[in-house]
């Protein structure tokens, strides 16, 4: 089966990263992974481990310096220029902080229509916008509102609706619930699962919560210091971790859940 995303020996550093001893200080080092169509992959790791950067490289928002990143068998460099919009249509991202990911001066209607206007060069009709917002469990009355008039959970639903408005193949969710109240986290995660099943999406979840990833994802990638510490099927990695780092993450997660209990 052909991989949807194939990353091989990929290296990335930010443009202004310090050069240490003549070599670039890589943010991501020697990353190799593949994502199968319609699978759900979780990327976990501590803050600063490179999870969000990896997602941005895979969806083409950041350009890697070494190695290969392929989408649907085509190298990302082949999508530059006129093909860039094809890559954008297929790859969409849901951001961590819904309040920062929606323009405060645009109504929800305008925010939802922007991707369609940009990627399909047309103004979406009312029916299309209403269907998009209703798909994420919100009513049409929110369309005329501004972001500050909605709750965090509602805003994240709008963020998900905006990403889905161009019917992507793969949805990257970059810690989609970490900025939300505990009471709405489960609702948003369930929504993502339902949408994945309904639309046949490939879902890549970035999270530092092992519990969320173990419940939602078939595959897991554990990252540390910009490298992949361990990757594989979620159940086997979590049951018998090869890496000490994964084991320590599991231990910390168990301790945290015991404290909560």
């Amino acid at each position: 089966m052909t991989s949807l995303v194939e990353v091989t020996n990929m290296y990335f550093h930010y443009p202004r990263a310090r050069i240490i001893a003549g070599e670039a200080a890589w943010t991501l080092e020697d990353i190799s992974l593949s994502i199968q169509p319609k699978s759900t992959v979780g990327i976990v790791g501590e803050s600063g481990s490179g999870k969000s950067t990896l997602v941005r490289v895979m969806c083409g928002l950041l350009r890697h310096q070494q190695g290969n990143v392929k989408f649907n068998g085509k190298d990302l460099s082949e999508f530059e220029g006129d093909g860039a919009n094809d890559l954008r249509r297929e790859n969409q991202i849901v951001f961590q902080n819904p309040r920062r990911s929606l323009d405060p001066r645009m109504t929800i209607r305008r925010s939802l229509s922007e991707p369609i206007r940009a990627l399909h060069n047309r103004q979406p009709g009312d029916d299309e916008i209403i269907a998009t917002i209703e798909r994420v469990g919100l009513g049409r009355e929110v369309l005329s509102r501004f972001p500050h008039q909605l709750s965090g959970g509602q805003l994240q639903r709008v963020g998900i609706a905006r990403s889905l408005s161009v019917q992507p193949t793969i949805l990257y969710a970059d810690e989609p619930v970490s900025a939300l109240d505990v009471s709405v986290q489960a609702q948003v995660l369930n929504l993502l699962m339902d949408l994945r099943d309904q639309l046949g999406l490939t879902l890549v979840m970035v999270s530092h919560d092992l519990g969320v990833v173990s419940r939602m994802c078939e595959e897991i990638v554990v990252m540390r210091h910009g490298r992949i510490a361990e990757a594989g099927r979620t159940d086997s990695v979590l049951a018998r971790p090869d890496s000490n780092y994964t084991a320590s993450l599991l231990k910390a997660a168990r301790a945290a859940s015991l404290e909560r209990a």
């Binding site: 991202i93 951001f95 323009d103 405060p104 001066r105 963020g159 161009v166």
Partner: peptide, 26 residues
């Protein structure tokens, strides 16, 4: 540097559009 600008890039908007439609109004 805000997420909604990155979101605009993610659906294919270019910098001049972002400056005119997101930065200037804000």
């Amino acid at each position: 540097a805000l997420d909604y600008v990155e979101a605009a890039y993610s659906y294919g908007r270019k910098k001049p559009y972002v400056i005119r439609h997101h930065v200037l109004p804000n």
